[in-house]
């Protein structure tokens, strides 16, 4: 099992005391498996993703990823896990605006070693980014920026890809195109995918679906 989440708890401080967001979530994911996580706004989808990535600390429960206890790791341990095991795709793309497309794609792979130029070229070709390699993020459309973010996440060859509404900022036609390419590439790499989405249509394209409601899996 690649990812195992057990009885995960998380709350945020509110004006009238802590507001629970996750109330004991248990979930698992095998290598190469794809899972769509759906749920209404505020149901805790993004929080769950952040806790799996080690971007935030849980209040209780455990997250095991690739044989490591994420919830027991310190900040630098969690950072190491993100670099080497996880690829994250954000709704807001979160590219580095001062680096060009080629440097952005290679970036995470460079953090863990020397990226393979052939792999980078293959990803750029597959995602239709070759003409854009010398451009900067601000010169790209939203769809192009999300393709760069996907290429960056895949170039590091992670075992788990976490995608938070990856097409939430794109129109339907562009979103479909991007998703098509994304899922094909994920299948090629054999990585597992945990994707948060609002769209039942997109969720239906993944191997498994789970629905979060008020901090619990329905």
């Amino acid at each position: 099992m690649l990812l195992s989440i057990e009885d995960l708890l998380k709350s945020y401080p509110g004006p009238e005391g802590p507001v629970p967001v996750l109330r004991g979530v248990t979930l698992s994911l095998d290598a190469g498996e794809t899972l769509a996580l759906t749920g209404e706004s505020g149901s805790g989808k993004s929080t769950l993703l952040h806790l799996v990535a080690g971007l935030d600390a849980a209040d209780g429960g455990r997250v095991g990823l690739d044989g490591q206890e994420v919830t027991a790791l310190d900040d630098s341990g969690r950072a190491r896990l993100r670099r080497s095991t996880v690829g994250i795709i954000f709704q807001q793309f979160n590219l580095i605006p001062s680096l060009d497309v080629a440097a952005n794609i290679a970036f995470q792979a460079r953090l863990i070693g020397t990226p393979e130029p052939q792999e980078l070229s293959r990803l750029a070709h597959a995602l239709g980014l070759e003409p854009q390699l010398r451009k900067y993020p601000e010169q790209l459309s939203g769809g192009q920026q999300q393709r760069v973010a996907i290429a960056r996440a895949l170039a590091a060859r992670p075992k788990l890809i976490l995608a938070d509404e990856p097409t939430g900022n794109l129109d339907e036609a562009t979103a479909d195109g991007v998703m098509e390419q994304f899922l094909a590439l994920v299948a090629e790499t054999g990585a597992a995918l945990l994707m948060v989405t609002h769209s039942p249509r997109l969720a239906a394209r993944l191997g498994r679906r789970a629905h979060l409601s008020q901090g619990r899996l329905a």
């Binding site: 971007l55 900040d75 190491r80 993100r82 080497s84 580095i96 605006p97 995470q108 953090l111």
Partner: peptide, 15 residues
């Protein structure tokens, strides 16, 4: 700030 958050999200330790 955005870049720094991205770097950290991609696994660069804070220190």
């Amino acid at each position: 700030r955005g870049v720094i958050r991205t770097l950290r999200a991609l696994g660069v330790p804070l220190r």
